[in-house]
Design a protein around this nucleic acid. Structure first.
Length: 742
DNA sequence: AAAGTACGGGG
DNA sequence: GTGTACGTACTTT
């Protein structure tokens, strides 16, 4: 009876030399730093390993060794395995490297699972878990009991207090003149000036201490604000405390001991170069840089909580990761639970380049080319989470595709499930790791969508929407991971099986629709557009039900369009393209793809104009009403042009945004964007592949004079009116071209 | 005409 | 601590 019992939530788990620091929310406003001794481990396995050799090595590396067995992922066969436990989380990486040198990378398993995830998996104290812990007087956790289940849709979550920190105005603060800092908490905003460094740091820390938020949301905190503050503190040799770690207070290292920083990087994903600033992670408080977090931007705090709970990844790391990291961690967690040996995935940058021919693509989905034209009362039907649902339903996984146990020469000759078109089969005896990871996610997303629909208050609806959107994202990327050669649990044949089934199902949807007397207009991977004289919403719903029943795949009516335009290709106006269309649903909602307002590089003013045009067009009940609207729509274009000419449009609204795809000095073509990149570099701004730039188009002449960086405008510049008017005109024409013709 | 550059998707 | 596509559109050479 040496300890006390505390009930609350795990907020964060941070490895150190002795084990884990568990930041624990005991009650509102009370956060405890508990200690949990923890020793991470990894596994050696393989036919050539000898017990004596492993024991000798383990002794050299001061590891405990436990012989046992593990399941080889692809074959499902059991083999001897030795689990090596290191004495401290800090030693894991170094010991894994030694083991790799001694026994080769192929003998290593479960070797790149982060210590905090190992801790989550083995104790159940995953981030945001509700638990009851028994602690010693010094805060050491003696025992714990997890009180909730990450799969529980209704599990209670901790209340979180938030403060916001950003530089005044828009855009990257380093890409313009110095602007003051804004700190917002408890409904009040405070302005801080950088000029008097010592005072600035003092004021900021006072504000932060008074507000004492659990979460500090910044804009460009990783990229600008925190590094600048740290540099300022170092320059003035001033203390700088931004987390809640009391141990940091005694140090004079300007917060260096309290902020964990990892490296900045540029990386390519889905053909786009992304720059990610060095994460600045705090102790006892979360820092999320909203501008450096895809997931926070898309799904907010509820989405991050959801993914932390399911994946065991801590919140600050999750905020800076892709959905792929979460799904990958969940696959690993399930593999570990089942005793499957998780292959070691070495980081070998030189291998990245060589694999171009094996690269996976999102190709393989069935696409049609719709004939350009206008339609009324079109129904759009979408298969829900088509690819993950197929993986679940047809048991598609790297180890189940063309498995030996169901092959032609299998004992007893029991056949697997044939995959259409590609002459492959999936296992009919043993469920795959990937489908078993996905099935509960699909189910939870379905439940969350149901709660979203049923919720009455907008807040509650938003809460469920964000959570189900987070799950949607990990479902989307789970498919990409399946086909990526270097992914832990990837195999190209599994990827092909999914797209083959996808084509089969889309084709089936088309045929069922046609059989039922609908005219097939367009199909795109998991969606079909169909029409039928006199069909109402109810008829489309019935069709969706029929298709769902016959294909065994959930499909829903996305909506019935009042009018819908499949837009022509700009290069060749007589043909359509799969992904350029715009239409208005019966409820007035617009759905548009491939047009200016959907593009990031379109100036906000032009995008807003196109949106306004479509908003008006969405009021037209049918094509006749739309045609009658034409004079009014052209009038809108004229009004926008007048606002532009009269100087009523601020430069911010005219900014063209671009993301650099390479190092600034590597640009060959002398484009306006390249000239602005040079301008920014000349002003001392650091730009990387993936950095975003924004510029105003100004007058004609050489590239140098045709664009200016938004952040350094001095008021003497005037926008290139002719160019912007042309953009307005093109934005209008793009959505009106077919209406004019009719 | 060819090469360089950037965009979307999903909801 | 992620996952190097592909087709379209536009600009420069």
């Amino acid at each position: 009876m040496s300890g006390r019992s505390v009930t609350g939530w795990v907020l964060d788990v941070i490895p150190d030399a002795c084990g884990m620091t568990v930041w624990f929310r005991a009650k509102p406003g009370k956060t405890l730093a508990l200690k949990a001794p923890f020793r991470p481990s990894f596994t050696l396995a393989g036919g050539k390993l000898r017990d004596a050799g492993i024991r000798a090595a383990a002794q050299r590396w001061r590891c405990d060794v436990a012989p046992g067995e593990g399941i080889e992922f692809f074959s499902g066969k059991t083999m001897p395995a030795w689990t090596l436990t290191v004495t401290s989380p800090a030693l894991l990486m170094a010991t894994v490297r030694k083991a790799e040198n001694a026994f080769g990378p192929m003998a290593l398993f479960n070797a790149d699972v982060a210590p905090e995830q190992q801790f989550s998996f083995s104790t159940g104290l995953y981030p945001l878990a509700r638990a009851q812990v028994e602690c010693a007087p010094d805060g050491t956790i003696l025992s714990s009991r997890v009180l909730d289940d990450p799969w529980d849709v209704e599990a209670p979550w901790p209340a979180v207090t938030t403060a916001f920190l950003k530089v005044e105005g828009k855009g990257h603060p380093a890409h313009g003149r110095t602007r003051p800092l804004l700190f917002a908490a408890d409904g009040r905003t405070h302005v801080l000036l950088w000029e008097d460094g010592e005072r600035f740091l003092r004021d900021f820390q006072k504000l932060l201490a008074d507000a004492d938020p659990d979460l500090l949301v910044t804009e460009y905190g990783d990229d600008f604000i925190l590094p600048r503050m740290l540099a300022l503190a170092a320059m003035h040799r001033a203390p700088f405390l931004i987390g809640r770690d009391p141990r940091a207070a005694g140090r004079r290292d300007s917060g260096g001991g309290e902020i964990r920083r990892s490296r900045e990087r540029s990386y390519v994903t889905y053909g786009q170069v992304i720059f990610r600033a060095a994460p600045h992670m705090l102790s006892g408080r979360w820092h999320v840089d909203a501008r450096n977090s895809f997931l926070f931007g898309e799904t907010g705090l509820p989405g991050l909580f959801e993914l932390c709970r399911l994946s065991g990844i801590t919140l600050q790391r999750m905020a800076r990761s892709s959905p792929g990291t979460a799904i990958s961690a969940m696959e690993v967690a399930l593999a570990l639970r089942r005793g499957i040996l998780v292959p070691y995935k070495k980081r070998e940058p030189e291998e990245f380049k060589s694999g171009a021919d094996l690269v996976t693509t999102d190709k393989g989905g069935l696409t049609y080319l719709p004939r350009p034209g206008l339609h009324e009362k079109v129904g759009e039907l979408d298969f829900a989470s088509m690819y993950p649902s197929l993986m679940d339903r047809y048991n598609i996984s790297p180890e189940t595709i063309n498995c030996a146990c169901c092959g032609k020469r299998s004992p007893g000759g029991r056949p697997g499930t044939p995959v259409p078109e590609i002459g492959a089969h999936t296992c009919a005896r043993r469920r795959g790791l990937i489908p078993d990871t996905l099935a509960p996610i699909l189910e939870k997303r379905r439940l969350l969508k149901g709660r979203q629909k049923a919720a009455l208050a907008p807040d509650a609806r938003d809460f469920f929407r964000k959570r189900q959107t987070a799950l949607k994202w990990i479902l989307v990327v789970s498919f990409g991971f399946l086909g990526y050669k270097n992914a832990r649990f990837g195999r190209i044949e599994a990827h092909e099986a999914v797209t083959a089934w996808g084509r089969e199902k889309l084709l089936a949807a088309k045929e069922i629709a046609e059989r039922e007397g609908f005219f097939f207009l367009h199909g795109l991977t998991d969606a079909v557009w169909v029409e039928k004289e006199g069909a109402a919403e109810e008829d489309y719903r019935e069709l969706a039900e029929k298709i769902g029943r016959e294909t065994g795949m959930p499909i829903a009516l996305e909506g019935v369009y009042r009018w819908l335009a499949f837009l022509p290709s700009k290069r060749n106006p007589s043909v359509g393209v799969p992904n350029r269309f715009v239409g208005a649903f019966a409820d007035g909602e617009i759905k548009a793809r491939g047009i200016a307002m959907r593009r990031r590089d379109t100036p906000p003013f032009v995008a807003a104009f196109q949106r306004a045009l479509l908003a008006r067009m969405s009021e037209a009940e049918d094509l006749a009403a739309l045609r009658e609207m034409m004079p009014e729509l052209r009038e809108m274009e004229k009004d926008a042009a007048i606002a532009l000419r009269e100087g009523r449009v601020p430069p911010e609204a005219l900014a063209v945004s671009r993301r650099l795809s390479k190092e600034p000095e590597r640009y060959v073509a002398n484009t306006v964007a390249a000239a602005v990149t040079r301008e920014l570099c000349g002003r001392g701004v650091t730009l990387h592949p993936g950095s975003k730039i924004r510029y105003l188009l100004t007058g004609d002449g050489s590239a140098e004079t045709r664009g200016r960086a938004i952040g350094f405008l001095d008021g003497s510049e005037s926008p290139d009116l002719a160019r912007y008017e042309q953009m307005l005109h093109e934005a209008a024409d793009e959505v009106l071209c077919l209406v004019v013709g009719g």
